[in-house]
Computed example of a mutant assay.
Amino acid sequence: MGRLILLALIILAVVLLWKAFGPGSGDRAGAGLNRPAERPEIKGPDDDEEFLWTLEKNRFKERRAREEAERQENERMRRAHERYDAAPAPEPGKESPSADDEADPGTNAEDKGEAGEDHPER
C-alpha cells in the first residue's frame, strides 16, 4: 500500500513540474517581462480610463464653480443686509426721504409747498 501512495505522489510531482517548466511555460511566464504592456482595447466610452477621468474632473470643476458662485452670492447678500441694517431708520411720525428729496438736497419742506401756502385747502 505504501508503494502505491509513493507512486501516486511521484506522478503528481512530475505533472506539476511539467506544467510549471514544460513546453509553453516560457510564453506564459515571460509574457509580462519581454513585451511592453499593451493598452486594453477600448470598446466604449465607459472602458476608456482617460475619458472617465476627464468626466470626473469636469464634474469637480463644475461643482467648485457652483460652490464659488453660491459663496459669492451669500457674501453679496450679507453685505447688502449689513448696508441695509446700518442705514438709519426713519424716526416715528416722519416719512422717509423720497426720491425728490434726494434729487435736490437744496430744497426744504416750505419750498415744496408742504407748509400749505401754495395749496389752499378746498
Rank of each mutant, 00 (worst) to 15 (best):
E67P: 00
D111W: 04
N74V: 05
E70A: 06
M77R: 15
E110S: 11
A109M: 11
K61M: 14
S98C: 04
Q72I: 06
R64D: 07
A103Y: 07
K61S: 14
E110W: 09
A69Q: 12
A109Y: 12
R63F: 06
R79L: 14
Q72M: 10
E56W: 11
E62F: 10
Y84V: 09
A103F: 09
D101T: 02
G113V: 02
G106L: 08
A103T: 08
Q72A: 10
E73G: 03
R79Q: 14
S96P: 13
R76G: 04
E102K: 14
E73T: 04
E62T: 13
S96W: 11
A80M: 10
R71Y: 02
D101S: 04
R76D: 06
K57H: 13
E82L: 12
E95G: 08
H81A: 13
R83Y: 06
K61Y: 15
A65Y: 06
P90E: 01
D85P: 03
E110V: 11
N108R: 10
R64H: 05
M77F: 09
D100R: 15
N74F: 03
A109W: 15
A86P: 06
A109G: 08
R83W: 01
S96M: 07
R83N: 10
D85V: 07
S98E: 01
S98Y: 00
E82S: 08
A87G: 00
D100P: 00
E102F: 10
K94C: 05
E73Q: 13
E67F: 03
P88A: 00
E114V: 03
D100M: 07
N74W: 05
P92G: 01
F60K: 15
P92Y: 02
T107I: 05
Q72K: 14
A103N: 10
E91Q: 11
M77E: 15
R64P: 00
N58L: 13
N58S: 09
K94T: 10
E82M: 09
A115R: 02
K112Y: 03
